[in-house]
Design a binder for these strands. Structure first.
Lengths: 198, 198
DNA sequence: CGCGGTCTAACGACCGTTCGTTTGGAGGAC
DNA sequence: GTCCTCCAAACGAACGGTCGTTAGACCGCG
């Protein structure tokens, strides 16, 4: 079934989550062995099981944490009072900032979630759907207000916005001259310009 | 070193490449065992080695094939004689069509290339860079011709175009009502509108 | 007869996980 | 201050199984 309850993560357990996020993002879930993780923490392989239930559970925790971060930032943007354009801009900036500031867990969330067993995957999928629905809502509002073109395919436009944001982690490198906020705002500018009514 | 020479792939070998592309795209490279591949072909594990040198070589072949397909389509668009907008549209449509018509190898190309050893990865990286350069070229041409805004950050705009196209494989399902060409053209319309000078 | 293609068997290494034991520090009793 | 108990954390060996790969025997087709 999986231990979906049980929180109160000890400091050590949290440290394991961080190490796992880094390793899973670099080597992939299946490419990371418990030996790799143990080495990163200076432990023996078997000692890990004093803190975790299984490798799978560790993957779920990392993925779920990534999903929650996007959801939280998305809600902030959704509840803003400005125009649809302003809210979409805020959402995109928040999205890119989240992806970059938590590059490891965001990468695992986007890349490795499909290796979860069906029941855990469904939980994550729900959060993904909720997030996508937020984007659709903002775009719909923009159309209703006459800010965005009335012939916009909402689902499709939402997917374009997410596509743009979700690919960032594959090319972003810290030494580049653009920070997360600048990247998010440039994305937003190009995309909103494409949506706007003439 | 790797057997980068040796072509003339027998029919059986080509069949293995296709099976590997499907399995790698579904389960990931590290999540696919030679046993999985043998099962898919109705063979014993060891029999595979009459046709391939190693699992790694198989991955390289799939990834490299994916890269070549994008390059070929990109060149077609680049050599077109129309406006920058028309060429960018053609490139994006070709990109999405390629990604969807060869969903397996495109997925492996985009997702699993990082598991290649350094020397093979470098070869693929070169092709990626070449492709990205094509997109930049078209956008630069558009700026020079006055079609696109003069303050466009070329590298950044190119990345946005690729981000949009490269995320398609994660959500595209054949039963949807939009075909590859329609998807590509809608992408292009939104993105070009965002780039155009007023 | 030669030979490509498959089979079976085996190789050493590593997989995720379990478990009995050891460690070391905290806290109370005297 | 010294002893003893307790407990969480880590050890380290072992589990059954799978990994990618190699080798040799065999088979049918030319």
């Amino acid at each position: 079934m999986a231990q979906l309850a049980e929180k109160v993560p000890s400091a050590r357990r949290a440290e394991m989550g961080r190490a796992a996020a880094r390793l899973f993002s670099e080597r992939g879930y299946h490419g990371t062995s418990m030996q790799h993780l143990a080495d990163a923490l200076g432990l023996q392989r078997g000692s890990l099981y004093a803190h975790i239930g299984s490798k799978q559970e560790l993957l779920f925790d990392v993925v779920d944490e990534g999903a929650d971060r996007f959801l939280t930032r998305g809600r902030e943007a959704l509840e803003l009072s400005g125009s649809a354009g302003a809210r979409l801009r805020r959402l995109l900036v928040g999205h890119v900032e989240t992806a970059i500031e938590h590059l490891d867990s965001a990468t695992v969330f986007l890349n490795e979630w499909r290796y979860l067993p069906a029941d855990m995957r469904a939980l994550v999928q729900d959060k993904r759907d909720t997030y996508e629905e937020m984007v659709r809502k903002i775009i719909s509002d923009g159309i209703a207000a006459g800010d965005f073109r009335s012939d916009t395919d909402v689902g499709f436009a939402a997917r374009l916005v997410l596509s743009a944001g979700n690919w960032t982690y594959t090319w972003y490198r810290a030494e580049g001259d653009l920070g997360p906020q600048e990247i998010g705002e440039r994305f937003a500018e190009l995309l909103i310009r494409g949506l706007e009514a003439r």
